[in-house]
Structure formats: structure tokens, C-alpha cells
Design a protein around this nucleic acid. Structure first.
Lengths: 320, 320
DNA sequence: TTGTAAGCGTTATCAC
DNA sequence: GTGATAACGCTTACAA
């Protein structure tokens, strides 16, 4: 590997001068600069970022931790973060947290040990208290899901309101017996959206029937829903509280559950082209990722400024 | 930040001993080890990975460069890489290359300057010759798109064969005047799939009409196709040579192009639930990412072994 | 078993 | 305007 030393040697100057040339320090004679520049290109010098960032203790990379990078929602979110990070000369390290809340802490710790400059996270566990010690050394911004057990910036959608809107829509179509599908209640958004479902029911004077509340692993959602429809033919509509689950169950609405109505919290690819039409509460992961990343860099670039910790983005029902 | 020095001081030993304890070096008295361990946890010591990796010149991170992380195909691929990297105690840095081939080199260079341990790339430019100098310092594996202008491992699908199969399928349904949609020909897969289209036509004694070849930005694909249908009503079928484009144009087949047949190279989310049914050549990004990452780490872990450079994965037409 | 010294590539400080 | 020196945190010789 070619180092500054090598360049300095060839150019007949000190390493420090090479450094100066590289950093465009004005305190270098044009002639010297020229000589150094020539040596650099002759030797194909590439600066060792690792050494540089080691000096100031911080890798120019932001971490993004999401449940699953392969989920289009989180992929878009990560892409948006990447875009912002790029304008700040930062790279982006990604980590998928997976299914098991118990793994979250270890995965996140593994990332943070690498002295990244900041973390954007959509957690899967019930409590992120383990992050508290890290907060002194790097900014953390939550996205999509608010922090529990730790105080940090967060950018979320109005889950309860969105869910209520979605369920209201079903009521407006005349449905009264409405099932709800959701992820694990470890996930805080599931709890909020469930609350929205409940309050919509309350608004319409319908009592919550726990038998209509189907939670857990999205991969089993279709089976669970199918079983419900069998034992309870009065159910006429379903509120799916996240897009992952919606994608799992949708095909059922084209076959064994044809005729039932479906609304979804969270849009997903090709949703607009589906028959039957699925109204969705649109979340805009792009925007979520962008604002979260902007906040991260705002924190990094002006550590003493104050910012609004809680940030709730509006959501809208589309294709209704 | 708490350093080894601090821990050493508290434990009353030298930094080296702390290092030994941390690395589970057997040459430490149980008693000493105990004392150091206590000091570490008292001080909440976290090792500075940056310093450690700086020493051996290599960050424990693999780079993944793809056209667009928000594209479900590449998101799945990246997710698979992440899974493998994780078992090797490596992080994953992602970069979306975007639309403009001219940006590729700079974006990739920016990543590699960070002394990452390896690169997995699905390039967008016509020539990756710029990578040659990097090959001495880190392994590079191409995915989905073979390298041009540089010799490196690559894992691709059988593009030409897949395309031929897709177009054959249209012929078998009686179609003779078949349009083809594609990305820019800067992308090597587009060229291969176009070749597959041409040879399928040749097999069936149909001459290629350049007017039926619609290439360029996927976002304009629907408009281009619409215009073609207007001026050439004899076209009865369309081969879309990548999933991005297919997703753009699909809605047209539900409205202004209803009745035309469509086959796609590349599956996409919810495709199975669409009406009309779209047969697709399935690519399995998951598998592609997995094998590419495995190769990357194989190269890293046994630098002197020899491997097969060219690796072509089979593709199959599904939902036909 | 434990400690000392040196160095990884870069840059800040402070001379000259 | 330029250079010597030290330092970032850790680890690998090599000593003790």
C-alpha cells in the first residue's frame, strides 16, 4: 500500500506537506503542491480512510437497523437514508434485525462497536433501554417505531389515527364485524394500530371481540385468517395492520376469502394493480428515511442544538 | 471514551494484559483475568474496533453496490449478502449506483477508499476497467451482471437462454409480432436478453424489426409501449426484459393494452396475485446474493485457492 | 505470566 | 511555507 510517507519521499517533502496538499490547505507553495501532486498520481496514492477516521475516532458511516432489508418498506427507507448520507460524505451500514426480539441488542451492539457516527433504527424488541449507554457517544434516531425505555429522537407515523381511519372506512361501507391482523405486540406500532382499531370500534358502538384479533408471525397470517373465517362466517371485513401481513394474506381474498373486504396499514409494491382493490394507509418510507437521516446529521453537525424529539408524520388513506 | 489504558490502570496491570484478557489469550492467571474483567465491566469498556481494524488495515465490512437498493430484487440480494457476512463477523455497507453510468466509478471508489474487505457489485456502466487497480487489494465479486473490462468472479443468470425461453413461450401461444422492452444497453444483461429475444425470433423464422425494440429509462417504458401499440396494432405480445420495467408497464395491460400478452424476465413482489397472469423468468436474488457472498469470503479466507470465475445460474419460466 | 517498545497512516501542534 | 514530533487505541514482537 502506498502511504503518505512514500509520496513524501518521492516528492522530497515531509508527510505533513503531502497531507496539506491532499486537504487543500492553502499554506503550500504552488510549486511544492505541483511536485506533490505529481508524486501522488505517479504512485497511485489512495488515502487510507481508516487511518484518517481512526484519528478522529469516528468512521464516516451511519448505521441503519431495520427488521428486514428485503421488506420493500425498509428497503426504501434505507435507500433514502443512503441518499442523505451520501451528501454528507458518509457511507451506510445496514443490518436486518430479523424475527427474534432477543437478537436485537446483540446485533445493534455489534454495529455500534465499529464506531459508526450514528444509528437509525426501527426496532423489533419491546425495550431499547440497552441503547442508553451508547447515547453519549453517538446520535440515535428511531424511525417507524418509537423508542421504549430510552429517550431519543423519533420519526413515526400517526399509527393510532391511521388505523382508526382505516377501520372507519370499513364501517362506512357497512361492515360491523371486522377482524384485525397484526405482527407481534412486541412491536410498538402493532400496539398503537390495535388501539386505533379498538377506538374505531368504540366510536361505532361495537364491542371488541378478542377472537377477531389475530396477531403473530406474518407467515402464519393467512392460515389464521382462514381459520377465523371458517369458525366465524359473520366476519365481513379485515384490517391488516402492516403491509407485510397484507402481502401474505392478499391472495386469500382472491380465492377462499373472496367477498371479504380488506384495508391495509402500509402500501406495498404493485398494490395499485391488484384486484380486488385494497385501500391502504400510505406511510411513505422514503420520506421517513429522509427526515430521520437529516436529523441524524443535524445532530452530528451541531451537537449543541436542540431538536424536537417526537415527530409524527401524517398518514392518509389512499385508493379508498 | 474508555480505553484499554484506563482498564489497565484500574486493574493495576499493563494494557497488553487487558488485551490478552479480551482476546481470551490463555497466558493469563485466572486471578489477573478476574481482576481485569471486573475493571472492564466497571468502566463499561468497549473495544475500539476502529483501532483494532486499523492495525490490520482492513475494516470487517463488505461493500454491496447495486443499481438501486429500493428495487426489491437488489434489496433481497443485499439481504442475503448480509446474512452470510454476519456469519463471518462482517458488516455490510450498501451503495445504490443510481441511473447514471457516469457516476458509478466515483461511487465505487468512494466506498473502496474506506478499506473495506471486499466488494459485491451489480454494475450499471459499460466498463468496469477502473476496478483493475483495486483487485490487488480486495476481492471483487460481480452479481447479476458480468464484468466488462476487468477479470473478476461473477455469478449471473443465463440471460440469453432465459430470454429465449420467455419469447419461445409467446410463440407457443401463437404470437408472431412481439415487442421487447429493456433497460439501457449500457447494462450487459440487457444486451444478453436482447440477444436471446433475437435468437428466439430467428428460431421461428421471424425477422427482427427494430421498431419493436424499446429501450431506455424504465420510467418511460409505459409511454413508449403505448406509442408503439398505437402505431403498430399488429403487435400482440410483449417481452419485458427486466422486472423494474415490467412493474412500470403492467398497469397498462389492465387498461389501454388489455388483450396483449406479457412475459417478464425477473419476478417481482405480488406478481403471482396479478390479473392478467404474467409468466416470469425467475431469478432468485436470494440465491445470487448468497453464493456471491460465500465466494467473497472464500476468497478472503483462502487467498491462494483457485475458484471458478464464471458462474451461471439456471433460470426457469414460472407461472406460464 | 506479564510488561515494554514500536508501529499501523494520518493529522494537530508547534517550532522553524 | 514547511517540517519534526506526538498522538489516536490497539496488537505484535521481544524482554523480563
Amino acid at each position: 500500500m502506498v502511504t503518505m510517507r512514500d509520496v513524501a519521499h518521492v516528492a522530497g517533502v515531509s508527510p505533513k506537506t503531502v497531507s496539506r496538499v491532499f486537504r487543500d490547505d492553502p499554506h503550500v507553495l504552488p510549486e511544492t503542491r505541483e511536485r506533490v501532486a505529481r508524486a501522488m498520481s505517479e504512485l497511485h496514492y489512495t488515502p487510507n480512510m481508516l487511518a484518517r477516521t481512526f484519528r478522529d475516532g469516528r468512521l464516516a458511516m451511519a448505521a441503519v437497523a431495520v427488521p428486514d432489508l428485503a421488506d420493500p418498506f425498509f428497503a426504501s427507507l434505507a435507500r433514502a437514508v443512503e441518499r442523505v448520507a451520501h451528501t454528507e460524505d458518509h457511507g451506510v451500514v445496514v443490518a436486518s434485525l430479523g424475527d427474534d426480539p432477543a437478537d436485537e441488542e446483540a446485533l445493534v451492539a455489534a454495529m455500534l462497536q465499529r464506531q459508526l457516527s450514528g444509528l437509525i433504527i426501527a426496532p423489533i424488541s419491546r425495550d431499547q433501554g440497552y441503547l442508553t449507554p451508547w447515547l453519549t457517544s453517538l446520535p440515535v434516531v428511531f424511525v417507524d417505531r418509537e423508542p421504549v425505555g430510552v429517550r431519543a429522537d423519533y420519526f413515526i407515523e400517526d399509527d393510532e389515527r391511521g388505523a382508526r381511519t382505516a377501520v372507519d372506512h370499513l364501517f362506512s361501507q357497512g361492515h360491523r364485524r371486522i377482524a384485525v391482523l397484526g405482527d407481534s405486540t412486541d412491536v410498538v406500532t402493532t400496539r398503537h394500530r390495535l388501539a386505533g382499531y379498538r377506538s374505531a370500534l368504540a366510536d361505532h358502538g361495537v364491542e371488541v371481540d378478542d377472537d377477531l384479533v389475530l396477531l403473530g408471525d406474518p407467515r402464519q397470517a393467512r392460515a389464521r385468517l382462514h381459520a377465523l373465517a371458517e369458525r366465524d362466517p359473520d366476519v365481513t371485513a379485515v384490517f391488516s395492520s402492516n403491509s407485510r401481513t397484507t402481502q401474505e394474506v392478499f391472495p386469500a381474498f382472491q380465492s377462499e376469502l373472496a367477498g371479504l373486504a380488506l384495508v391495509s396499514f402500509g402500501d406495498f409494491p404493485m398494490a395499485a394493480a391488484l384486484q380486488p382493490v385494497v385501500p391502504v394507509v400510505d406511510q411513505d418510507p422514503e420520506r421517513l428515511g429522509t427526515v430521520a437521516a437529516q436529523r441524524l446529521f443535524a445532530r452530528l453537525n451541531s451537537p449543541r442544538s436542540r431538536f424536537k424529539v417526537r415527530n409524527v408524520l401524517d398518514v392518509h388513506l389512499i385508493r379508498a
